[in-house]
Design a protein around this nucleic acid. Structure first.
Lengths: 216, 216
DNA sequence: CGAAAACTGTACCGGCGGTACAGGAGGCTG
DNA sequence: CAGCCTCCTGTACCGCCGGTACAGTTTTCG
C-alpha cells in the first residue's frame, strides 16, 4: 500500500539524520516517533526491531549513494571522452558537490555500522561488505579503463587504487568531522585527484599530452 | 594511591576493547564491571558518568597513539638521513606493523567519537579536534622538511598533504572493517606511500636521484 | 461493502545509566 | 594505637528505553 510506504519513508528520513548526527545507539525510537508523529505501535508495525531499522536505513542510504555516483560519473563521462579526463572530472564534480553542502557531509552510514560492528547481526555486516565491494568494482572499472590508455608511473593494483577512492572519502568524512572543517573532505578528494593525475600524466606543469596518440 | 590507578587502568583497558568492538552505546557499564571484577559503585567511584569514561578512554588512546608514531617515525629518522627517505620508511614500518596485527586494526577511538558526535559534550569534541590538529602538525613538519629538499611535482599544500596521512589511516580502518580484509589498511598506506614518492621523486623506474645535489 | 492495511492505546517487562548513601577493608600518618 | 583517607562493597531505588502483547480503530482500495 502507498500510505504505509510513505510513513515508512518518513521514519527512515528522520532516523537517518538522527543516526548520522548522534550514532545509532544514541538515537531512541521514542524520539523518532515523536518527530514523525506516529505512535510506538506504529513504529513496530513497520520495523519489528531496531536492527531491522538499521538494515532498512543502510539499504536506503546505499541506493541513494549509488545513484549519486552514477549521476556524477555519468555526467563526467558525457563531458569527457578520455577515461582519465572523465575520472578526474568526476572527482572534481564530486568535490564541488561536497563543498556545496553547508554543514559538510552528514556522515556515512557504512562507517557508522563499521564502528558499531558487533552490535548488529551478520546481515548488516554483509550488506556493508557488499557495499564496499561495489565501490571497489565501480572505481576499478574506471581505473582499468584508464590503464588501457595510459601507463601508470608506478605499477599499482587497480583494486587498491579503487579502494583508495573509498578510503579517502571515508577518511575524509571522519577527519572533517574531527577537525570541524567541512572543507577538509572536498580538499582531500582534490589531493587524491592530483595524485591520480600525476600517476597517469606526470608533471602538471608540462602541457597536456596528446591523449589520442596513446590510445589503443 | 597506586591501587586506585591500577583498577582505573584495568577498567579503561577492558572498556577500550569493548568500545572498539561494539561502539560506545552498545558497551554497557554492567558488562565492564563484571569483566573487571568490581562493583557498580566501584565503577562510579572512578568515573562519575559514562561521558567521563569516554573522555579518559580517548585521552589514554591518544597518548598511546602518539607514542607509537613517535617510535616509528623516530626510528625511521634514525635509519635514514634524508627526510623523504625517512618519511617513506616510516610509512613502510607503519604499514608492516599494521599488517602484523592478526585481526587487523582494532579501530580508532577518534573515529568512534566522530560518529557519535552529538552524543558527547564539547570537551570530547575538542579533544578530538586537538588530536586531529596534532596529527596534522606532526605530518606537516615532515612534509615541509621534505619540501626543503625536494620540489613537489604538483604544488600541494603541506597541511592538506599531512591530513592525507590521517585520512588514509582513518579511511583505511573503516574500509578494512567494512571489507573484512585486515590487509586493506596496510595496503592503502603503501598506495599513499607510492603517491608521496611519486610526488617528490617522480618515476620509480628511473634510478634514484642524487639527493644531495638538490639539497639547499 | 468488505477485507486488508495501517495504524492507535494501554499495559507491561527487563536492562541499563545513574543516584544515594551507609558501611567496611586496608594503608599511611601523627 | 587512633584516626583519617583512599578505595571500594552492598543495597535500594529511579526513569528511560527497547521490546512485547494484544485489543481496538481508522483508512485505503478492490
Amino acid at each position: 500500500m502507498r500510505k504505509g510506504d510513505e510513513t515508512r519513508a518518513r521514519i527512515l528520513q528522520v532516523a537517518e539524520a538522527a543516526v548520522l548526527a548522534k550514532g545509532f545507539g544514541a538515537t531512541s525510537i521514542e524520539e523518532l516517533i515523536t518527530e514523525t508523529g506516529i505512535t510506538k505501535s506504529g513504529f513496530f508495525y513497520h520495523f519489528h526491531d531496531k536492527n531491522e531499522l538499521a538494515k532498512a536505513l543502510l539499504e536506503r542510504y546505499l541506493e541513494n549513494d549509488n545513484r549519486i555516483y552514477d549521476e556524477i560519473f555519468g555526467r563526467a563521462h558525457e563531458l569527457a571522452d578520455d577515461p582519465l579526463q572523465a575520472f578526474l572530472l568526476g572527482l572534481k564534480l564530486l568535490s564541488e558537490q561536497l563543498a556545496d553542502l553547508p554543514n559538510g557531509h552528514p556522515g556515512c552510514l557504512v562507517a557508522v555500522m563499521c564502528v558499531h560492528e558487533r552490535a548488529f547481526d551478520r546481515g548488516i555486516q554483509e550488506i556493508n561488505r557488499q557495499a564496499a565491494l561495489a565501490w571497489r568494482s565501480r572505481f576499478r572499472a574506471m581505473f582499468t579503463e584508464i590503464m588501457d590508455v595510459y601507463e601508470p608511473r608506478e605499477p599499482l593494483d587497480p583494486d587498491q587504487l579503487a579502494d583508495m577512492v573509498s578510503t579517502v572519502l571515508e577518511g575524509g568524512i571522519v577527519m572533517s568531522k574531527a577537525l570541524r572543517e567541512p572543507k577538509s573532505l572536498p580538499d582531500q578528494l582534490l589531493v587524491l585527484r592530483a595524485f591520480v593525475r600525476m600517476l597517469f600524466r606526470g608533471d602538471s606543469r608540462s602541457p597536456n599530452p596528446d591523449v589520442d596518440s596513446r590510445r589503443l
